[in-house]
């Protein structure tokens, strides 16, 4: 499992797309941090204080995180099915190890990216925002789980690229929209998006979101174990 996760982690870091995404994430985070620092006085008056830096990073993650994760990892499982490299792996380890290893690798990649982003904020904020880091990580983990599920359910990588990107946009738009509307259908939908849980003032409300990637992983394992490779 560890070998598979480390390979996935390295692959994501070596990919040009991932480097671009990391640059965007860092650049926008730093830009937001600079803008935020220009309004430091006002933010202090509003009681946001130094947390505004972390808030800036969090807004970027909430807005662009789903797109980053799903565009980069939409084919994490089905690429190996499509190229048939899975036939070598599946005869050497369990399907559980394969799927879980893949999820761990993608998670490790994103936790590293977020960690670097939050470390870059430190020179401005003079603090490491552990709670916000945990919240953004859980948010990203939701979409890592979703990408694992999509790429397990859909065998064609080209199709998951389209569905993954569409889902990312739909989740973001509908997630934010559901927070500001009374539409009953959107309200119901909001319960399965992480945005609902992040709209609450209480920080601990982000933690129930952890259940979703676990459910996504469990469904993926159930489906993958029954799949002919």
């Amino acid at each position: 499992m560890l070998t598979i996760s480390l390979k996935e982690f390295k692959n994501l870091f070596q990919s040009i797309r991932s480097i671009i995404i990391i640059c965007i994430l860092f650049g926008v985070t730093l830009g937001a941090a600079k803008i935020v620092s220009n309004f430091q006085g006002q933010l202090d008056q509003l009681g946001l204080g130094n947390n505004a830096y972390a808030t800036g990073a969090m807004i970027i993650v909430l807005l662009a995180g789903p797109l980053f994760v799903l565009s980069l990892s939409h084919n994490v499982i089905n690429q190996e099915l499509s190229s048939r490299t899975i036939r070598f792996i599946a005869t050497k380890t369990t399907r559980f190890n394969f799927v879980t290893g893949k999820m761990l690798g993608v998670t490790l990649f994103w936790i590293t990216c977020l960690l670097i982003a939050f470390l870059l904020i430190i020179p401005f904020s003079k603090a490491f925002f552990f709670l916000e880091f945990a919240q953004t990580f859980i948010f990203i983990l939701y979409f890592v789980g979703l990408s694992i599920l999509l790429s397990t359910l859909i065998p064609k990588p080209s199709l998951t690229m389209f569905i993954g990107v569409s889902s990312a946009v739909a989740f973001t738009v509908l997630g934010f929209w559901s927070m500001a509307t009374d539409n009953i259908f959107l309200k119901i939908f909001s319960f399965i998006t992480p945005y609902f849980y992040y709209s609450h003032a209480e920080a601990y409300m982000a933690f129930p979101v952890l259940l979703f990637p676990i459910i996504f992983l469990a469904i993926s394992l159930f489906v993958f174990k029954r799949r002919d490779l």
Partner: peptide, 27 residues
Amino acid sequence: IGVLPDYSTFYDDLTALGHLKYFSRIL
């Protein structure tokens, strides 16, 4: 057990030696 499947595709970015390292670690 060793298996040579009917249709063999490998990871483009790995060398022959890299493949053997990867597969042996998985095992």
